[in-house]
Design a protein around this nucleic acid. Sequence first.
DNA 1: GTCTATATGGCGATAGAC
DNA 2: GTCTATCGCCATATAGAC
Lengths: 211, 211
Amino acid sequence: MSEINKDSTEEKILHAAQTVFIQKGMDGARMQEIANEAKINKALLHYYFRNKQKLFEAIFSKVFNQIFPDIRSLIFSEKPFEERLGAFVERYIDLLLKNPFLPAFILKEINRDPDFLASLIKKQGINPEEILQMIEQEMEAETICRMDPRDLMINILGLSIFPFAARPLMQMMFFNNSKKEYNEFLIKRKESVKIFILNSILVNKKQMPGG
Amino acid sequence: MSEINKDSTEEKILHAAQTVFIQKGMDGARMQEIANEAKINKALLHYYFRNKQKLFEAIFSKVFNQIFPDIRSLIFSEKPFEERLGAFVERYIDLLLKNPFLPAFILKEINRDPDFLASLIKKQGINPEEILQMIEQEMEAETICRMDPRDLMINILGLSIFPFAARPLMQMMFFNNSKKEYNEFLIKRKESVKIFILNSILVNKKQMPGG
DNA sequence: GTCTATATGGCGATAGAC
DNA sequence: GTCTATCGCCATATAGAC
């Protein structure tokens, strides 16, 4: 029981590795830089994680499971669909605001090892099929427009994630490269994305920005 | 006049470098691999482009200018806004279908060198301000909902680009990792994204998937 | 467990013949 | 312009003292 220490060397390594890997990616990261960040010796990295690949996988799965949090509780509550969808968008963008580099990191590394990615998805409790079916039920009940549920899912994710993943370019093109303005813009998107989606899928209602 | 040869060594290098850089990124790419791909010697790469960074920049600007084609002609035609927007989405997704790895590549490398990115944007004829103003005029004329024009632009780009950038994950989660099905899905999105956006922004009209 | 020192290999880059 | 050979560095990884 005594070795459960949040400031343990292993924890320090994991924290440092996450910082460096997220900014530089697997290829760009250097073991020395991670060791510096953790304020330990480089050899210790190998003592704890054998090699760079293993350390990277530890970080990637950690981060991956973090960005796909248990959505189910939000998605499958008793509230009306639009409320659940709104809550999901808000919570998701909030998560990204707290971890703004995750999207670029995930997208960057998603191609590296498809098998590893597949294993992570399986380990994860989330069942995409289940969510798609739920969306289909809503369409059946005609509370939302009929469309491919996968389109809707990917639209929701894209609208939430893209502004983070493409931040440097978007900020430069549309915000005079002002970090402050772009941050405010991202916060406002918790509302505007919600409205944009609901406007598109709600049947027979037109929700306006002000109301 | 005689040295304008499309099969020149320089062309072969550029083509090979694009293939490798797009798949592996700057950090992951190896000069040797590019040389193999071009079926030339590694030393020739340095003879033509001095170093890896310069070669990468040549590829990145080439690709960058390719993915930001002269949008103006489409955006600023005489046709009604919804038609122009629809045409833009279609043409943009078509471009991505022909170059499916560009989005991931661009997003991956967008953080590397902000100054270089800025210089590319400036060199490019596109003036984002001009497009935003045009969108604002449409809102003024009440042909589309009032909202932050930058939101609309980023929504359009995100909805078009994200399914390509996040392909491995989306394909695995929602399409049983079927490449064929995902390709068909992407093609259908030329229509569904258009509908999704127009549904959301058109005032007093509700466009349905079938009509 | 943590360190110093070193092995080992790979990569970008150059020298120099042709 | 194109090649072979090689340099010099740097990054991962290991050996071994403490």
